[in-house]
Amino acid sequence: METWQRLKRNLSELWQSFRRNRMGLIGLGLVLSALAVAILAPWLTPYHPQQVIRDANGRGLTFAPPSVHPPLGTDDGGHDVWAQLVYGARSSLTVGFLAGFIAMFVGSFLGILAGYFGGWLDNFLMRLTDVLLVIPDLPLMLVLVATIRQMQLKISPLTVLILVIGLLYWTSTARLVRSQVLSIKERQFVARARAIGAGHAHIIRRHILPQVLPLIVANTVLILSTAILIESGLAFLGLGDPTKPSWGTMLNFAFDRNAISNGAWWFYLPPGLAIVWVSLGCVLLGNVLEEMLNPRLSGHHLEGEARILKHGERK
């Protein structure tokens, strides 16, 4: 498995140069900390998100500011906002990550097939991505999710979200992977492998996959941020699972139940910040990875003039 060894070496080189990139490290930090919060949720708060907080007289504490009920106060129903936030990380990240991974798998699979085999399959897939590109995505998803829900199938709302997002956002990955595969296919060793009678599966596994994998990883990270943003949007529009509120669902509640007119900023600020936290982390990370894989142009012709050294001046 010499090719995989090479991949491993490439990845470790990638990590070496990644370690020196501040933006990338910040992104990684943001994403990992959010993951940690989601995993450690039960240890981070004594409350359950659905539990009603009561005052000394046993009345529900509604819209209690953080000063009354630290750290983040309560919502309209007297639930602890911090507990909702940390448990919400679980729903948000689950949907975002699973949808992102589905998109990545479908996109890479179809991209490799289209790029490697070409012909009518390639043509068909590319036209399909063209079509998906011009149909406005949010309305399409809303109609799809609403219809699927109405069908009363026995799947949870979160699963519906995961599937719809995952199965609509593979196009960019597919295009990217396809063009990369096309350029790899041009290279010598693939032709050589073909000539000595290697099978398609073998060539794809040994020669194509190790080379497109880094690109797929970088692209997946970017897709994750899209998936998390879309999830929050759909949940905000009321398509989340009210029993497992994600950050988007929290914002939906906050908006519907007049957190704004009540001045309950502790209810509508934190979930949004959390979404920005994660998606910014993914974007930073993804951009840095992508930049490392194919460095952009080093400069352009109007960036300034060459320096002319005075006599005797060094460098």
């Binding site: 941020s225 943003l229 929050s232 949007g233 905000f236 988007g248 914002l251 906050a254 908006f255 704004i260 001045g263 900023w265 509508y268 600020l269 979930p271 949004g272 979404i275 920005v276 998606s279 910014l280 974007v283 930073l284 951009n287």
Partner: peptide
């Protein structure tokens, strides 16, 4: 532009709504 990209549209709306009206 990175931060704008990472910010959910509706949430920015909510914040501007709260800030602008108050």
């Amino acid at each position: 532009s990175l931060i704008a990209w990472a910010t959910p549209t509706f949430w920015l709306g909510i914040i501007l709504l709260a800030a602008g009206s108050t």
